[in-house]
């Protein structure tokens, strides 16, 4: 363990190498490096093969269809290069759906995360029975979309719906939810928030509980009030988890379509269509697999850009915050 010269050059050549292991010989070091890779391969390869079988290959196949014209069951696919993509960006049906996916996703994310944050603050108080509250709030996330959207539709029925019956009973005009774009969007957002707020609250709660308690005590010594503590300790402490929650929520909100399918069905006049809903319709109703593939690729590109951007940012800040801790640990 005292061939310092060699260890030094290793560390210089590979700053990422595990310093703590201090390999003795070149060949041993070589084997050690291989052992990690081999172990990783043994573990990962079967898992990745199964993953490829179930979702990797089919998705890739679906994407490739984006470069083919394939309309109708009896048709056979013909390679057409980027024509589908050109059509995508020329046709207002697709660009409109894409744009709607983005802002509707943003809206759903914003409302869910804000209300979830409020709930998490309350759940973080030393209340009796907060476990029960947590469960109650999370229940909507557990239910199946098909079943609960049916219930929403019973509420929104123009003629016999629960809400319009109520409006009529207090002498107000019933509202035709189905022929108003604004209300359509409103109910899609309400449904999504209803389903998502409990999960968001749990994530925020986990974040709140991972904030260093010493900081609160220090703030109290400084005479900070509830609001000041929230602003100066809680929110800055939550910054890392906030980014994670925001990105993952946004990515799933951009892809919502089941609630659109079951609540508005894209109507009225296609004004609430979102891109994944369009993909679904192209794929199954019109059997236009080419456009469905092209739209999926566009969607995937957007989502992957967001992910890569996020991950790059995350690993940067990761190094900033966690590396010193690790070094400290190893030194001891």
């Amino acid at each position: 363990m005292n061939r310092d010269g060699k260890t030094m050059t290793t560390a210089a050549a590979m700053p990422n190498a595990p310093v703590g292991r201090q390999p003795q010989h070149l060949w041993k070091r070589f084997r050690t490096r291989h052992r990690d890779a081999m172990l990783a391969a043994v573990i990962l390869i079967p898992m990745i093969v199964f993953w490829l079988l179930l979702s990797g290959f089919p998705t890739l196949f679906g994407f490739l269809l984006g470069f083919f014209r394939w309309v109708g069951l009896a048709d056979s696919p013909a390679f057409i290069g980027f024509d589908n993509f050109v059509h995508f960006f020329k046709d207002p049906v697709y660009t409109g759906a894409l744009w709607r996916s983005i802002w509707l996703g943003g809206l759903v994310t914003g409302v869910t995360l804000l209300s979830g944050f409020g709930a998490a603050l309350l759940m973080n108080m030393p209340l009796k029975g907060k476990g029960v509250y947590r469960s109650i709030w999370y229940i909507p996330a557990v239910t199946s979309t098909v079943a609960t959207t049916q219930i929403f539709n019973l509420f929104l029925d123009t003629n016999n719906g629960v809400i319009n019956n109520f409006l009529k009973s207090i002498g107000k005009e019933p509202i035709v939810w189905q022929y108003s774009v604004g209300w359509g969007i409103f109910w899609i957002v309400v449904y999504s928030v209803w389903k998502g707020v409990g999960g968001a609250a749990l994530l925020w709660l986990a974040g709140l509980q991972s904030v260093d308690h010493n900081l609160y005590e220090a703030a109290e010594v400084d005479g900070a009030g509830t609001w000041a503590k929230l602003r100066n300790v809680t929110i800055p402490g939550l910054k890392p988890i906030a980014t994670y929650i925001f990105i993952t929520s946004l990515i799933s909100a951009i892809q919502i379509y089941e609630q659109v399918l079951f609540i508005t069905n894209g109507g009225p006049y296609g004004k609430t269509e979102v891109l994944v809903f369009r993909i679904y319709r192209d794929g199954f109703w019109d059997f236009n697999l080419g456009m469905a593939g092209a739209s999926s690729l566009v969607m995937a590109a957007i989502v992957i850009v967001i992910t890569v951007f996020y991950y790059g940012w995350a690993t940067r800040s990761d190094r900033r915050t966690t590396i010193p801790v690790k070094t400290l640990g190893r030194g001891g």
């Binding site: 539709n153 029925d157 123009t158 003629n159 016999n160 005009e173 019933p174 035709v176 189905q178 022929y179 508005t264 069905n265 109507g267 009225p268």
Partner: peptide, 16 residues
């Protein structure tokens, strides 16, 4: 009743 005749799903029309 308002909107019933062109309701996106047919169920409510027959319910009425």
């Amino acid at each position: 009743p308002a909107g019933l005749m062109v309701n996106p799903t047919e169920g409510p029309y027959f319910d009425a």
